[in-house]
Design a protein around this nucleic acid. Structure first.
Lengths: 100, 100, 100, 100
DNA sequence: CCCGGCGTTAATGCAC
DNA sequence: GTGCATTAACGCCGGG
């Protein structure tokens, strides 16, 4: 029996344990796990679709003459705090000089 | 100038090249690139949100007593062809015996 | 029997198929697979050790006041062709202006 | 100046600050950083080579008729505690039944 | 059209 | 326990 069933079943002693009751309890918990699983699977599917959409755009952009590699670099840059970028750049420059 | 502008400018010769015209052309193309970039960023954001949603469900499931690790294994199994799972299992068994 | 045994066994017909012979063949092939597996496991272990060594150096460097994050950025930069870096930088700048 | 130089320079006030002295201090610290960087780069290179070696073995094994995918599964299994494998298998079975 | 390599992203382990 | 660093998995991309 699943760990999660324990709490659900803790108070069952006071009722006569019928087959029907047991089936219900199992269904309930099976349903709960199944619900989690299916929700996750649904979201994963959506996520995958978005991935495809993104790929499509890169492909289209590429056929318009834009370089996906540069686009990715730009996007990555944009999704960082400008201050952080500046800071890292400064420090990097310092270290770069230090090691020659 | 971006590579992609070339084709767009191929037919521009018939018009006098004014600064205003040039600005327009650049805007058009800037807009095109910007459009690609922003659409991708939008989709990436949605994708990230879905990732968070999935994480949330795993967290909730865990607090219900289900083991995320086992859930992941189950989900992975379900998203494969049953035949493939069977096949891998069989082969794995074979190899396992082979190496002791 | 493993797929790989097929070729090894192709010429076996000319000999009487004894249990001993079969055991030998299986041992040979089991050994081959086992050898592959164990060599890989050995290399993976060495790889892991190197990873630990690297971590140790970062830790020591950090305690000397150097920022591991910047060091990583510098190392990444150094392991790329300078020309490629320059090129990407140039294009990135172009795109950056284009999208504002 | 690098953060790490601070401690090295804390006691410098008592000496006349000569250009030569400063150059030495900087060299010392530059060397230290450079040493870290180069040691890490060396180790990373070795690590990469080991990765290539592993790839080579998989390739060779494949050309001997062994399926790399199955081999990877086996290796992963072997690098886990047998008890843990058993446990996961058991739980997975339980969950599998639960969701149907 | 398949396959190996690469880059990105999630998952585990660790250190604070 | 929370965040981070490493490692493994996944998906994408270019070449044969």
């Amino acid at each position: 029996m699943l760990q999660s069933d324990i709490e659900d079943d803790e108070h069952l002693g006071q009722y006569p344990e019928t087959k029907e009751r047991k089936a219900k309890a199992e269904n309930f918990n099976n349903d709960r796990l199944r619900s989690y699983i299916e929700r996750i699977e649904r979201l994963k599917a959506e996520k995958k679709n978005l991935g495809s959409d993104i790929t499509d755009i890169f492909t289209e952009a590429k056929s318009s003459g834009y370089d996906p590699k540069v686009m990715r670099a730009l996007i990555k840059e944009r999704e960082q705090e400008p201050a952080a970028v500046e800071e890292l750049e400064t420090m990097l420059d310092l270290y770069r000089r230090a090691v020659g």
